[in-house]
Amino acid sequence: MFLDRVMPRIADDDPELRTKRLRSFQAVLALAVGAEWLARSGPAIGDLTQTRQVLTVLAVFLVVPFLHRRLAPFRGLCILLFTFAEIAVTFPRSANHFWLAFLVSIPLALFRPDDEEESRWALGTLRIVFVVCIFYTGLQKLLHGYYFRGEVLAFYISQRETYRPLFSLMMPTSEIERLASYSYVVGAGPFTSDAPLFLLASNMSYAGEMLLPLLLLFRRTRLAGFAGLILLIVSIEAAAREIFFGVFFLMILFLFAPSDWNRKAWPFFVAFYVWAILNEFSILPKVTMF
């Protein structure tokens, strides 16, 4: 089979590291999906439908398979079922990273992380899915055609204040003010700018999303692709501020890190989600998370 030849090249870590990576990823993924659902739905639990209330309670129970080694075989399956339920109850408006969480939980449920051959396939499948996902985010921007003259970025500068500080480094203040003056009405615009740096950034965004993930596929270029994608996510977060998505993206990207970074970053991830839950419950000063 073609993939039998591909997997050893993509998941080329030694078996022990592969198993460690998969186990850590299971843990951070369970944390991400459970804590995010809790943060998003918890504050309004009284107003939710019964199905969503049940799912909010189940989010807490995602921790159970991690409490004992005997329950380890069920970890992937529990995450898969939970992410499937998330999509089912929010369909057709399901957030994109709910879908991504569902996709990455499939290899975790399918393969055993401590089996040498299966761990190769599990890690390889996860890496391929991530590469395909990022490549397509770039290709879709190219196909839809709203990035050549920066139309979409100009639109978001006009509609969301969070975009303006970053793009004020790339275009004159008068251009930012012009775009900010447009509202969502027929005839508003033009949603573009002639500022060269802005046009470069707009065109680099889809080009970077298409090229950088390909670097992840090969051992020699993996570190460059990894560093490039860290830079990309930092710049996306600087404007879009979709923090839940950003942290989740990092967790998957860490599957390509030189060592098991998800384990090393575990305290950071726990601290982040505790903060996120406190933030959404308005116990801390409110910050927009998504």
Partner: peptide, 16 residues
Amino acid sequence: PWKFNGFAMYTVPVRQ
């Protein structure tokens, strides 16, 4: 484009 897992977020303005 934002929906149904086509990896096409931010390809167009959010739909109104």
